[in-house]
Design a protein around this nucleic acid. Structure first.
Length: 429
RNA sequence: GUGAUCGUAGCUCAGUUGGUUAGAGCGUCAGAUUGUGGCUCUGAAGGUCGGGGGUUCGAAUCCCCUCGGUCACCCCA
């Protein structure tokens, strides 16, 4: 080490350290989500954070390729001199979501899995984007997926379970926007938009809930849609009354199959969770290319960006030679946490943390026995060594407890000084 | 990836038109005091002013580059 310059201790760009109090809180909330999902019959799995680029870019990669962290080949396979493109140098990458790995996992292990398979996956994904509020380069997703159910029952179950999870976290007033890509495709085709522009046009139309219509018309034009068509379609789509979306979509040229599907999902999921609103929104698009029909997005007034999203991706398993329908929804865990922080939602009381203050010179044995008893009784016990007569540790303990609470911990803090107190006394809650 | 903005002690920030040894509060450490624990008093430690280069007699302060944070776009959890 001698002579080396001191290294920066900051985390890598876009990455975050997580402090003890935050971890407490994350674990608590994650536990709630996990418990709700398990109660709905889902089974938790884990997949590696690294997948081969072949798997990750299986189809239409597009935007994903840019956002993927790649792993250099190792050893002799790494031929820097003869390689010309990044992809020649790399064979693996960090997953950018949990859906692609799930499909690979299912294809590999389906013989040992129930059918249909309801999975839970909670873990980090990585995207090489420029960091921003509510956008990190590493972020935690909590996914549930159903593989092997082609009916709308899958969507209904997913919406119900994730709504239930959000509700159990203490959230209300969130809404699920629901759409079917096939319907929007049909509407746009009917409106005269050329086949190859439909995808692009949808991305522009997705912004209608944030931008003024005129701006969206301009963007459509930039993307190659002629002005009269752009104005026409924007005009019609913005006039759709929320409660008659399905009828309106039918009038605009959407066919029966997707509309019936939407109707079924809407009907059975809209009253399934208290505090959750489900609406059909013909403008809900979602960027990921792999969705085939149903898409949904969950938003909350306290968060600018969506807090969950998902949809049906019936073709993805075909990458692995399977012909299975699949559908899933992903909670943006970090976003939900950040939002709940800002809302200053009341937190459920956590465990009791006890500082057991003792004099190491005369009471070590008593302290060890006592702390074991308190642990058995359910306390989280920290032994605090403090020589009798020296400065009281109370201030330090109080300050540290406050810091933990600031970070997000929700436990009660207790203390007991051996030789003085007969029982734990409340420090703060 | 494009654009904007910011970056001073562990934390929150001051720092006047560039001018002598860069400040405060909180926290930390030491000592004193306090008979109901986190009070009070005194003192101390702690800063390559994100990093590098330039302009200048002289830069935290002006210019360039770079790294990092924040925000918008893109896209998305």
């Amino acid at each position: 080490m001698g002579g080396d310059q001191v290294k920066s201790s900051k985390p890598f760009r876009g990455m975050k350290d997580v402090l003890p109090g935050e971890v407490e809180r994350r674990n608590t909330l994650m536990g709630i989500v996990r418990a709700v999902y398990r109660a709905h019959g889902y089974l938790e799995i884990e997949t590696p954070i690294v997948e081969s680029l072949d798997v990750l870019f299986g189809s239409g990669g597009g935007e994903n390729e840019k956002l993927t962290y790649r792993l250099l080949k190792r050893g002799e396979k790494l031929e820097i001199n003869e390689s010309t493109t990044a992809d020649d140098l790399c064979d693996g990458g960090l997953r950018f979501d949990l859906t692609v790995p799930l499909c690979r996992f299912y294809a590999e292990n389906m013989h040992r899995l129930p059918k249909p398979f309801r999975s839970i996956q909670i873990g980090p994904s990585f995207r090489a984007e420029r960091p921003q509020k509510g956008r990190y380069r590493q972020f935690t997703q909590a996914d549930i997926d159903i593989i092997g159910d082609p009916t709308q029952l899958a969507e209904i179950e997913l919406i119900t379970a994730s709504g239930h999870a959000l509700h159990t976290l203490g959230l209300t007033d969130f809404s699920v926007r629901l759409n079917d890509r096939r319907a929007l495709d049909q509407i746009l085709a009917k409106a005269g938009i050329e086949e190859h522009l439909i995808k692009s046009a949808q991305i522009a139309l997705d912004k209608l809930d944030k931008l003024p219509p005129q701006q969206v018309v301009e963007e459509l034009h930039l993307r190659g849609v002629s002005s009269p068509i752009a104005e026409g379609i924007v005009g019609k789509l913005t006039q759709i009354p929320p409660h008659k979306a399905i009828d309106a979509m039918s009038d605009l040229g959407a066919e029966e199959a997707p509309l019936f599907s939407l109707q079924t999902i809407l009907q059975h999921s809209s009253h399934s969770v208290k505090g959750m609103r489900v609406i059909v929104d013909p403008l809900c698009v979602r960027g990921l290319g792999y969705y085939t029909s149903t898409v949904f997005e969950v938003s909350h007034p306290a968060s600018q960006s969506s807090i969950a999203g998902g949809g049906r991706y019936d073709n993805m398993l075909s990458r692995f030679g399977l012909d299975s329908p699949a559908c899933g929804i992903s909670l943006g865990f970090d976003r939900i946490l950040a939002m709940m922080d800002e809302m200053r939602l009341e937190r459920p009381k956590g465990a009791k943390r006890l500082y057991l203050i003792f004099d190491p010179e005369i009471e070590l044995d008593v302290a060890l026995v006592t702390s074991r008893e308190y642990r058995k009784a359910g306390y989280l016990v920290s032994m605090v060594s403090h020589r009798r007569g020296s400065r009281s540790p109370m201030k330090r303990l109080a300050t540290e407890a406050e810091e933990l609470k600031r970070q997000g911990a929700s436990e009660e803090f207790w203390f007991q000084t051996l030789g003085e107190d007969q029982e734990p006394r409340l420090l703060m809650h």
